[in-house]
Amino acid sequence: MAENLLYALVGFVSIQLFYYLFIFTRLAFYGRGRNYASESPGVTVLVCAWNEKENLQELLPILDAQEYPNFEVILLDDRSDDGSEEFIRENIQNWKHIRYIRINDQFDHVTPKKYALTVGMKQANNPIALMTDADCRPSSLHWITTMASQVNTEKDIVLGFSPYEKRPGFLNWFIRCETFYTAVQYLSFTLAGWTYMGVGRNILYKRELFFENKGFYRHRKVTGGDDDIFLNEVATGSNTAVCIEPESFVYSKPKTTWATWFRQKQRHLAVSKYYRSRNKILLGLLSGAHVAVWLLGFATLGFGLWTKNNLLLQELGVVFGVRWIIQWFLLIVINIKLDKTVEWFSFLLMDFALFIYYTFFGLFVMTRKKPRMSWN
């Protein structure tokens, strides 16, 4: 019994460490400051908004002040009734780069956000589209510059990083942990040639790529997926770059209640089933191994204490010790690159919190009914 528990534990720890040592190291040791572009291609920033007046009052001046030689910002106002339209029309003459498109219609055959983004793609004057959301804030006036610098004849897509603002409380800490670990995964997988998602708060791709692949047509009725289902369809091992320059980061306002955060996670889960089989297997194996390691760890600990098997307890300590040392080292290196999103001393607690998170949502996926969701 003791040997079987330990062998199973070592097996699942080995799976986790494979990801850390052969995939996550690509991000940990990825060099910053890479500039592939020989010129500054025209960029259109697309911002979808629904009743976001307060956020637009902060965001639009920041976008208009971006230091880039050739760009425009298209604000796609999706049926807002909070005074957004009046605010934009009163102030648009004060902004050099802002264009305003009011969307008054809603269609059954396509979700509102995907329709808005498609309208923006068609109306854009530049070959490069850079997306963000109304509740986001670029970290610098060189956001467009750093993201666009990664584009060349081979790189059609650029994935950026979008952390959440630091605020007091356990919920905010966990949101930052989950966002950080998700970024570790999608950025590392991209560097390994297995792109499966980006974040719509900070993603860039060529408009030509969008129209060549019929945009969001194949998943037009799916709420969400404009950033991950689309990438699952069009990203290859060679056409996607990542940008982790601090000036390219886009900070987002986090959810402030567990209920709103849970609804957000529901939307994410609803689209993950559309991923390529390869991506679902790779991600499922990683999260499954995470859960199995903790369950087997508790089982081994309990069995060792019950049987007073000190050797088993020592071996358990060695296995978890090696695992945590490797995790800590690589996550600290990546965390420094990603603006110290999570406090390094809380990585152990983060590891356990993610175990609870994966377990809960794994059970939820197996038992849930189809939720009602909106794009915002």
Score class of each variant (00 low, 15 high):
358 Y>I: 02
190 T>G: 09
277 S>E: 12
150 Q>G: 09
255 K>W: 10
228 D>Y: 05
296 L>G: 00
372 R>S: 15
260 T>N: 10
138 P>L: 09
121 M>Y: 02
43 V>T: 06
336 I>Q: 14
226 D>A: 06
131 M>Y: 13
99 R>N: 13
300 T>L: 11
114 K>D: 14
142 H>N: 15
263 R>Y: 12
288 G>W: 00
221 K>Y: 10
271 V>L: 00
128 I>L: 14
226 D>S: 03
166 K>G: 05
128 I>K: 03
167 R>Q: 13
340 K>I: 06
284 G>P: 09
287 S>F: 02
307 T>N: 07
376 N>F: 06
48 C>H: 05
299 A>T: 01
372 R>W: 13
291 V>H: 02
299 A>I: 00
296 L>M: 04
135 D>Y: 12
140 S>L: 11
200 G>V: 00
133 D>W: 08
314 Q>Y: 10
265 K>G: 01
237 G>Y: 07
79 R>D: 14
41 P>W: 04
375 W>L: 01
316 L>W: 00
180 F>P: 00
6 L>I: 12
182 T>I: 01
173 W>N: 04
166 K>N: 11
124 A>G: 03
98 I>C: 12
77 D>P: 10
217 Y>F: 13
63 L>E: 00
57 Q>M: 13
178 E>W: 04
62 I>R: 12
230 F>Y: 14
125 N>K: 15
302 G>K: 00
341 T>C: 14
55 N>D: 08
100 Y>R: 09
43 V>K: 03
326 I>G: 00
291 V>C: 07
144 I>N: 08
322 V>A: 06
359 T>C: 10
191 L>K: 02
129 A>S: 13
67 E>D: 14
